[in-house]
Every structure is written in structure tokens, then in C-alpha cells.
């Protein structure tokens, strides 16, 4: 078969091998964490708010794998239910950052000159304020509901995505096929969505995974200082704060959410590295 005009095509065989490979441990671990949170009621017999005042700060046992908190609630159960919220904020903000960042960055790359200047300088300004402080300002202004937290976190991460999207789009549109496509009268939007987007997707995806780690940290930080999710709702950050209050009584209480946050962030970083390094070469069609 003639492969004229093709730099390198990931063949069907190669693709299959990639998908058949066992996912890396980081991804497996993330999957386990997510599934356990989603199916929390199946994993644990307790409810997140089932109190047992007779057994506060119980040590880990066959019944309570991670022990109980100050009201005798099962810690593991609370972590799993809390994880639902943490992961929701995380996922929601990643989607928001992805959508806004991609449109932001691609338009900047597409409309070089004035529009690009405006768009990218806006990104600079938002990045001149340390993220967590920016978040404080927004939370003070908008309040701290699940929705507002998700939106705020998403907006905060968007400029980073926009920068990445802009640089990969500029790289991609400088390739021959793009200018050739334009010269042959192909619509810009069509070219961008059909040809450019699939090729920059791996880079954007890698950035999105990094964003997920940042979102996780941001949400946990806000909840930890009491400006995020408000009890009785709970997230890992909230649980960490509650555990922090009982550091001297029962370190496990704080260590458990801390370790979960750590493991999740670490796995996300590893997964992002992997995604970033196994980018396919671009496919160039005649």
C-alpha cells in the first residue's frame, strides 16, 4: 500500500498492542481507588454517618479496618464516601479546564497577533496570583458549594491548559498538511476539529491528568483550611482537617486521608508522565 505523504502511521497492529498491554500500576491503583469510592456501599457495611459513641477512636480491627473517629464512625467508610466528593470536584474541574483551556489556547494559536496577545497575557495575569490565594478570593466571592468549588478549580487550571494547548497547536499547524489543507480550501474549523485536535489530544490529555493532581491538592487545601467542602459533607480534605484536630489522640485519623491524597496525586503524576512520553507521531494525510 502506498503511504505517500505519511510520516508515520500507527498501524492497527501497533495500536492493538498498546491497548492490550496491562495498564501501569499507577493507573490500576487509581482505578481501584475510584471504583471503591463509587461502589462504597458495596465495599463497606457501615454508613458514613453511623455513629457508635461507645467506641470512639477504636484501633484498626477486622470490623473497622482503619478504626473509628471521635464519634465512633468507621474511618474507611468515611474516606470512601469523602472520596466521592473529592473525585467529583477533581473530575468536574478537569473537564472545565480542558474545555476552556483548549478553546482558549487553540484560538490564541489560530489568531496570531492581537487576539493572541490578549488571550495569553490574560493567562499570565491569572497565573501571577498563587493558585490557592486566587481560590480564596473566589471562594470568598462565590461561596463554597460543591458546584462553585468545581467551577473555581476548573477556571484556575484553565490558563495552564491554555498555554499547553497553544504551544502544541502552533507546532501542529506549522506542519505541511495544515497549510496544504488551507491552500486547498479546507475550512479552518473543520481542519482544526478533524485533523489538528486528534493530534494534539495526547498532549492535552497529559496536561489534564496533571491538572487532576493539582485539582486534588487545591480542593484538599481549601477544605483543609475550612474554605472548601463544608461538613457534614465530607471530602478527603475535610477528613484531614478533622483528623488534624485529633493528632494526639489518634494519628491514623489524619494519616489515612493524607496517604490517600498522596497516593492519588503520585499516581496521577506518574500517569501523566507516561501519557506525555508515549505520544504518537502525528499522522499526516495527503
Amino acid at each position: 500500500m502506498a503511504e505517500s505523504g505519511t510520516i508515520s502511521v500507527p498501524t492497527a497492529a501497533r495500536r492493538r498492542r498498546v491497548t492490550l498491554r496491562i495498564p501501569p500500576i499507577s493507573v490500576l491503583l487509581l482505578l481501584i481507588i475510584v471504583l471503591m469510592c463509587v461502589f462504597a456501599p458495596l465495599v463497606t457495611p457501615f454508613g458514613p454517618n453511623d455513629v457508635d459513641p461507645a467506641h470512639p477512636f477504636a484501633a484498626a480491627s477486622g470490623q473497622h479496618w482503619l478504626g473509628t473517629d471521635e464519634l465512633g464512625r468507621d474511618l474507611l467508610t468515611r474516606l470512601l464516601y469523602g472520596g466521592r466528593l473529592s473525585l467529583t470536584v477533581c473530575a468536574g474541574s478537569v473537564v472545565i479546564a480542558f474545555l476552556i483551556g483548549t478553546i482558549w489556547g487553540v484560538s490564541a494559536a489560530e489568531r496570531r497577533g492581537f487576539v493572541e496577545e490578549i488571550l495569553m497575557r490574560t493567562a499570565d495575569v491569572t497565573m501571577a496570583i498563587p493558585q490557592i490565594l486566587f481560590a480564596l478570593v473566589c471562594v470568598a466571592a462565590f461561596g463554597a458549594s460543591l458546584l462553585s468549588l468545581t467551577v473555581i478549580t476548573g477556571l484556575l487550571l484553565a490558563p495552564t491548559s491554555a498555554r499547553m494547548a497553544r504551544s502544541v497547536t502552533i507546532q501542529e499547524t506549522s506542519l505541511d498538511y495544515y497549510s496544504a489543507g488551507i491552500a486547498y480550501g479546507a475550512g479552518k474549523i473543520r481542519l482544526l476539529t478533524r485533523e489538528v485536535f486528534p493530534n494534539i489530544l495526547p498532549a492535552l490529555a497529559s496536561q489534564a491528568v496533571i491538572n487532576a493532581a493539582s485539582a486534588m491538592i487545591l480542593e484538599a487545601s481549601l477544605s483543609f483550611v475550612g474554605l472548601g467542602v463544608q461538613p457534614p459533607q465530607m471530602s478527603w480534605g475535610v477528613l484531614l482537617q478533622q483528623g488534624y484536630g485529633f493528632l494526639y489522640n489518634d494519628p491514623t485519623y489524619a494519616v489515612a486521608p493524607a496517604v490517600l491524597i498522596l497516593v492519588t496525586v503520585f499516581c496521577l503524576n506518574l500517569a501523566a508522565n507516561r501519557l506525555g512520553s508515549t505520544r504518537h507521531r502525528k499522522v499526516v494525510r495527503p
Binding site: 484538599a220 487545601s221 493528632l247 498522596l262 496525586v265 503520585f266 503524576n269 506518574l270
Partner: peptide, 15 residues
Amino acid sequence: ASAGMAFPPFVAGIL
């Protein structure tokens, strides 16, 4: 270093 990067400051602080 990559392990260290996973430590948000407050988690590190508590530990």
C-alpha cells in the same frame, strides 16, 4: 524527586 512532588505542603506538614 517525583515522590516529593506528590507531597502537598499541608500533607507533608501533618506527617
